[in-house]
């Protein structure tokens, strides 16, 4: 495409530029519209109908205040944050160890382990929820944020391992060898050489784990019976059930739980993309 535009006569070039501009506008409209509409509905004083909410004539924060005071969203946010951070720490640590093992060592069953990690990702959560529920019941982990986080660690592990593997493998072996030559033990090499070098990859996987935990719905719905322990996703469903026609409030609540994820996403966009690509595609 670029090649064509270079050689095209100027009339055609403007046409191409115009087409491109229109395409970009269409893409932006499609991608941003739901988020915009969510925000504008949340901000409009009267969100009785779609058109009222489209351009809030009289913006207000009342809906947000209402969500925090009536909806119990402070509790839900706290719970989700707790579970998500626990998940991030747990899965990053375990995934890093595992990724080093599969990227830095050749051992029997290595390929088997890798394939298993890959295959386990496809198992639908809907299939696991029944027996995870029974397991959690037996272990007394229902209604426990720790229990939920533990399951999330396991859920986010396969992808995290798969993604981190690429980052670890990308660290040249010579760097490690240099550390050994300096007399470092393996453990020391791991923490002071390898760890800092794969830190960007860890950030990317952490975000992934965070988002997995923050957005997860079906397990949180099943595990958490006590309203005090709801995570944001389940809390939003509860809130929607109580305010089916109050779209302003529902959208305000939605905005509140979307913002942290969005902030994270935009913050680490670059690392995320490169991590994804190296993890999921290059293998």
């Amino acid at each position: 495409m670029t090649a064509t535009t270079d050689r095209a006569p100027s009339g055609r070039r403007t046409a191409v530029a115009f087409g491109k501009g229109a395409a970009v506008a269409a893409v932006l409209l499609f991608t941003l519209f739901p988020a915009y509409f969510m925000l504008s509905s949340a901000l409009s004083r009267r969100s009785g109908s779609g058109t009222d909410a489209l351009f809030p004539a009289d913006p207000t924060l009342d809906h947000f205040v209402g969500v925090f005071t009536r909806g119990g969203f402070l509790t839900y946010l706290g719970n989700s944050l707790f579970v998500a951070l626990l998940t991030v720490v747990g899965s990053s640590l375990l995934a890093l160890f595992a990724a080093v093992a599969v990227a830095r060592f050749r051992f029997r069953l290595r390929t088997t382990v890798l394939v298993m990690v890959l295959v386990i990702q496809m198992v639908p959560l809907e299939a696991l929820v029944i027996s995870l529920f029974l397991l959690a019941r037996d272990l007394n982990m229902l209604n426990s944020l720790w229990g939920l986080a533990l399951v999330y660690v396991a859920l986010s592990l396969p992808f995290a391992i798969w993604m981190l593997r690429g980052f670890v493998a990308a660290v040249p072996a010579e760097v490690e060898e240099a550390a050994y030559i300096d007399g470092a033990s393996w453990g020391r090499m791991f923490w002071s050489v390898l760890f800092p070098l794969v830190a960007p990859g860890l950030v990317a996987t952490s975000i992934f784990s965070f988002i997995t935990a923050w957005n997860e719905f079906i397990l949180a719905l099943t595990f958490m019976n006590d309203g005090e322990k709801y995570t944001v996703a389940v809390g939003l469903r509860q809130f929607f059930g109580q305010n089916t026609t109050d779209w302003g409030a529902v959208m305000a609540a939605s905005t509140i739980i979307t913002l942290p994820v969005m902030a994270f996403f935009l913050f680490v966009q670059r690392g995320l993309v490169s991590g994804l690509v190296s993890g999921a595609v290059k293998g």
Binding site: G78, N79, F82, V89
Partner: peptide
């Protein structure tokens, strides 16, 4: 820092 944050959170969440 994040561990400390988690511990602090767990104190109130749990």
């Amino acid at each position: 820092a994040s561990t400390a944050l988690i511990l602090a959170l767990s104190a109130c969440a749990g």
